[in-house]
C-alpha cells in the first residue's frame, strides 16, 4: 500500500467494568516478588496500516471495540 498511515488503536474495558484478567495479573505479580502494584488493567493494542484515517473511527465503533463494555482511542503514529 502506497503512503500507508500507521494507526494505533487502544481498546480497554470501560471504567467500572470488571477486568478479571487485570485482577489475575495483579494477584500474580506479588507472588513473583513484585510489590507495590495498585492496579492492573488489560486491554488490546491494534495496529493498522490504512490509506486514510477517515474510516478508523467507524472501524473502532463497528468492529474493533464493543461500545457496551469497552472504550477506545486511536492515533496516527506515522
Amino acid at each position: 500500500m502506497k503512503n500507508a498511515l500507521k494507526v494505533r488503536v487502544l481498546v480497554r474495558p470501560k471504567r467500572g467494568i470488571l477486568d478479571p484478567q487485570g485482577e489475575a495479573v495483579k494477584r500474580a505479580l506479588p507472588a513473583l516478588g513484585f510489590s507495590g502494584v495498585g492496579a492492573v488493567h488489560i486491554g488490546r493494542l491494534i495496529e493498522l496500516e490504512v490509506e486514510s484515517a477517515d474510516e478508523v473511527e467507524g472501524m473502532c465503533r463497528r468492529l474493533l471495540a464493543n461500545p457496551t463494555t469497552e472504550e477506545y482511542e486511536w492515533e496516527v503514529v506515522s
Binding site: L18, P20, Q21, T68, T69
Partner: peptide, 11 residues
Amino acid sequence: LPGALLRNTGM
C-alpha cells in the same frame, strides 16, 4: 439482544 458477555470472574 442487549448487553455483553464478559470473561468469567473466576478466570
